[in-house]
Nucleic acid binder design. Structure first.
Lengths: 200, 200
DNA sequence: GTTAGCATGTAAGGAGTTACATGATTTT
DNA sequence: AAAATCATGTAACTCCTTACATGCTAAC
């Protein structure tokens, strides 16, 4: 998920880690930042996999063999997505399986990069998400119906609030799906833009 | 978090693992169950810590040293909370620090066992949670104000929906806090029930 | 010249998951 | 007697966090 988000951000423009982290917080929903302890190892893995490249100043040039073991001396490292990285990103962005809409935060990230996703794939993901959330809602509803008697007020309030939340998400998804379909039918005659609808 | 929930459920009545898992799903918000790969190691840890005890049938009695290494032969194991376990649970249930209301799902579990929490502690936790969520809301709001221009429709929708969600949570918390305060003032004259308000 | 914010990383650990392995009991 | 569901557990792994360690750069 993190790697997907990193690829997505670097797809837009090269960045160094610190900047990446700030952008990541926005993509991952306003507050709650990723920690450097996750970010840098992730960058390392992506670089090892050849999906991004790093432009390090590397200041070990023109230095005699110094006694201080050269612990510091780090330069600002700018990361750029590679051709393989872009390929991988478009592969990820085209996936329509459950991993795209089941729980675990990936759906939010997918949505954040939806402009890179083809219109039909967008629709399938939104509908998949809706199915998932509807099932959650059913589970919650039946759980509430079964246990309504023996639960105290707090647990009941918790479940009621949870139910309202998933209910709102379903309605929100319905709106997104409607808009998506309306766009699809009005755009199919004029064969413009397959990517980047609205925005920018 | 899991261990807290297990203690809370066993506090109500002894249970075996399988049953525990079902009850856990309800406590942890309707759908999304815990897996056995989490549950059984957690039970093992709690038993090792002396917080719960297990009542195993242990069928190795009256058996000669068999050649088959006795791989199967497991009985239904019933777990019971110990005196130390209850003590620990009431310790956890009285905590008012950030771990009780910051993100990470603990708040939901705390609420599920709120009837075991004293009224003043309940209020402090609810107010702490409200502060946390209000801060999230501020973060989201300013992030949205800053980036409204350069974001595409999907990211905007995502943030808008997120903002509405935290907004709803704040309103919900306000209601809970109001009710809590009303109960506190109407109950203080009649010195009844310090625990178990409503429910059961 | 010192504080605040920018910047990069590692090591250890927490809290769960999936996949596997096994068997008992109930229902059809 | 086959299938479903109840029941218990381990091993390997995922994905993140916190705490630590280090240094650069701009502003006051």
């Amino acid at each position: 998920m993190l790697e997907f988000a990193i690829l997505g951000l670097l797809h837009q423009s090269p960045m160094h880690g610190y900047e990446l982290r700030k952008q990541l917080s926005e993509v991952l929903g306003g507050m709650r930042s990723i920690s450097y302890g996750s970010l840098y190892p992730a960058l390392k893995r992506l670089r090892a996999a050849g999906l991004i490249s790093s432009d390090e100043p590397d200041p070990r040039a023109l230095l005699p063999a110094d006694a201080p073991p050269l612990t510091g001396r780090r330069g600002k490292v700018v990361y750029t997505i590679t051709a393989e990285g872009k390929e991988r990103f478009h592969e990820l962005v085209s996936q329509t399986g459950p991993e795209a809409y089941d729980d675990g935060g990936l759906f939010g990230v997918r949505l954040a990069f939806f402009r890179h996703t083809a219109a039909d794939v967008r629709l399938r993901i939104l509908e998949g998400r809706r199915r998932t959330v509807e099932q959650q809602r059913e589970g919650l509803r039946s759980s509430l119906a079964r246990t309504r008697q023996r639960l105290d007020r707090y647990t009941l309030e918790l479940q009621r609030h949870g139910l309202e939340s998933v209910d709102r998400e379903v309605r929100w998804l319905n709106e997104l799906i409607d808009t998506e379909r309306r766009e699809a039918t009005t755009t199919e005659s004029t064969s413009s833009e397959k990517e980047n609808p609205w925005g920018q």
